[in-house]
Design a protein around this nucleic acid. Structure first.
Lengths: 233, 233
DNA sequence: CGCATGGTTGAGAGGTCTCAAGAAAGGTGG
DNA sequence: CCACCTTTCTTGAGACCTCTCAACCATGCG
């Protein structure tokens, strides 16, 4: 993956473009401007914790990361997944330092802005604000999942969320996606134990809602999943 | 409660001033400017749902409200409490409309800005951003509570959060505060059943951590509560 | 081939839920 | 000021969901 050409960015190489375009139309000029604000590329191995204290905002260009908080006794809650195309450090939530860890869940590549507060054009700002709003909406979803849904419902809902997000940046198949994290990580997102995540996934499989071949997830019955995920008022 | 005098605002009448001053120093001129942006006062009875679709941002001046989401089958999750001094609609989170309800939990008074996007001075903007950041931090706390803490821990943590927030706007005693909501509401915030909230509060009482005389909560053993609330990494 | 890692299974314990009823508190009209 | 009614809190008992502990299996890799 290379970032040397500023023109004609392709969605594949630039997931953040796909992501931003969901929230506001961006002209070629906007994209060129965006590229000019982007500089340094960093890569991290899976498991590496990122230090955000002094780093400018960045976009995830490939791989998965997470925002998490750990309790004294080792319990960990993943607050949000950071997927390709996601911006980190642009908003107050992801710039929040104290007591929040950002960890690479897989091999991770990120692309930093060259300034802490890049001065962006209106459309870019609007797109970024839209992406931030979407992130906040997902955080609310996460609260509802953890507070009021069963393991089965939570899992169905999360799988749908992940598929939707990956699909938006061209990283999903129409009916499935690559899930590159251990069940332990799913447990930490879902607020469940590893064992129960395993059993819940099996139940979803037995019910014909999903299929899992290794790290590949197939959403076999989307309507069923959506019914299980509930969450609509 | 009157809002007619623009000068010499007192923290009691203007909880949002206390709140904002936590996050940035504000001069008298800043406060005068703020007052000029504030207009209409609305009052709502307990239980009333607020319509944010077309309303400009506002501050809660007295009473409690909440941001919540309900599932089809009636389960409700309160995402955040809105206490006196809290701003609503200034940031992306609380401006978020679809599928989020804002409900008055007690008799409520709010003070609207007269514009949807008031143009504020630097210090005011900084203070508002700080308040928003604090709100996001609390949302993360909420995720951790719901995902990884026991009923006992959640409850202790919430009581400390509420005391801290009320204290910051002068609505708490040093060792306690007025808790104007039913246990059912606490249940919906804590992701627990009403019955279990009741039992958990009793356990906290039996352990000598708190005291509850009607709606008055006394934090009898702050160190014990903090230990129980854990959540520090 | 053997180890390491991650997934799967079983069994029992524990936390939390639901249902249901009884006590306390608060408000209202006589 | 009391009687009554409603709301809220409290308590009990059993069911259920999820957890922990502890193996065992599958896969991949040196």
């Amino acid at each position: 993956m290379t970032f040397s050409t500023a023109r004609a960015p392709t969605p594949i190489d630039r997931p953040y473009v796909s992501r931003l375009r969901l929230h506001a139309p961006l002209s070629d000029d906007d994209l060129i401007e965006l590229e000019q604000h982007l500089a340094r590329v960093d890569a991290y191995p899976a498991g590496k914790e990122l230090d955000l204290t002094s780093a400018p905002p960045f976009f995830v260009t490939s791989g998965w990361a997470c925002l998490s908080h750990s309790l004294r006794d080792g319990r960990r809650q993943i607050v949000a997944f950071l997927l390709p195309g996601d911006g980190v450090g642009f908003d107050l939530l992801t710039r929040m330092r104290p007591a929040m860890d950002v960890t690479a869940l897989t091999a991770l590549k990120v692309r930093h802005t060259n300034a802490a507060h890049p001065q962006l054009s209106r459309p870019l700002e609007r797109a970024l604000a839209g992406a931030t709003a979407a992130q906040h909406r997902r955080l609310v979803d996460q609260v509802v999942r953890l507070g009021r849904q069963t393991a089965y419902e939570r899992t169905a809902h999360l799988l749908l969320e992940l598929h939707g997000r990956l699909n938006a940046v061209g990283e999903a198949r129409p009916d499935g996606f690559h899930l590159p994290v251990k069940q332990e990580v799913l447990a930490d997102v879902l607020g469940l134990s590893l064992v129960h995540v395993n059993r819940t996934l099996q139940q979803l499989r037995r019910d014909g809602l999903i299929e899992m071949r290794g790290v590949q997830v197939v959403l076999r019955d989307r309507a069923g999943l959506e019914a299980a995920a509930d969450q609509s008022a």
